Amino acid sequence: MADLLEISPAEGLLPYATGAAELNELALGRATSIAPFKGQESAVEKALGVSLPDVGRSNGKAGQEIVWFSQGQFLALGLDVPDTLSKLAAVTDQSDAWCALELKGDASVDVLARLVPLDLRQSVFKRGHCARTQLGHLPLHITRTGNASFRMLSFRSMAGTMVHEITRAMDLFDARG
Rank of each mutant, 00 (worst) to 15 (best):
Ser95Phe: 08
His129Met: 08
Ser51Asn: 01
Ala21Gln: 06
Gly39His: 05
Thr133Asn: 12
Lys126Arg: 12
Ala175Asp: 14
Phe69Pro: 01
Asp174Asn: 14
Asn24Gln: 12
Pro82Leu: 07
Ala97Pro: 01
Phe74Ser: 03
Pro36Ile: 02
Gly56Gln: 06
Phe173Thr: 08
His137Tyr: 09
Val44Tyr: 01
Ala35Val: 05
Asp174Glu: 13
Ser70Ile: 00
Ala107Thr: 04
Arg114Met: 13
Ala31Val: 12
Met158Gln: 14
Cys130Phe: 00
Val111Met: 04
Leu101Val: 01
Thr143His: 05
Arg30Trp: 00
Ser157Gly: 15
Val44Glu: 07
Leu140His: 06
Gly39Ser: 10
Leu48Gly: 03
Leu135Trp: 02
Gly105Lys: 04
Gln64Tyr: 00
Ala43Glu: 15
Leu115Asn: 03
Asp83Lys: 14
Ala89Pro: 13
Thr92Asp: 11
Leu101Asn: 02
Glu65Gln: 13
Ser157Pro: 08
Phe74Lys: 05
Gly136Thr: 07
Met162Asn: 10
Leu79Gln: 11
Ser95His: 05
Ala10Cys: 12
Ile34His: 02
Leu75Met: 15
Thr92Ala: 12
Gln122Glu: 15
Gln134Thr: 12
Arg156Pro: 06
Asp83Thr: 12
Ile142Phe: 09
Arg114Trp: 00
Ala76Tyr: 03
Ser51Asp: 01
Leu101Gly: 03
Lys87Ala: 15
Asp3Pro: 00
Ala35Trp: 01
Leu4Ile: 10
Leu88Ile: 05
Asp3Tyr: 00
Glu45Trp: 01
Phe150Gln: 09
Val163Cys: 12
Gln134Asn: 10
Ala17Arg: 14
Lys104Trp: 00
Val44Arg: 03
Ala148Leu: 13
Leu79Ile: 14
Leu138Gln: 10
Gly63Glu: 10
Gly177Tyr: 01
Gly136Leu: 10
Ser51Leu: 00
Leu14Ile: 11
Ala21Leu: 06
Gln94Thr: 01
Thr145Cys: 11
Ile142Leu: 14
Asp96Asn: 11
Asp83Gly: 13
Phe155Leu: 14
Gly49Asn: 07
Leu120Phe: 10
Ile142Asn: 06
Val81His: 09
Val163Ser: 09
Ala47Asn: 06
Ser8His: 10
Gly136Ile: 08
Phe155Val: 04
Glu45Ala: 11
Ala31Trp: 00
Leu101Cys: 04
Ala148Thr: 15
Leu85Gln: 09
Leu172Lys: 07
His141Met: 07
Ala31Ile: 02
Gly72Pro: 00
Asn147Ala: 15
Leu23Pro: 08
Glu65Leu: 10
Leu28Lys: 04
Thr18Asp: 14
Ser42Thr: 02
Gly39Gln: 08
Val124Lys: 14
Phe155Glu: 15
Glu25Trp: 01
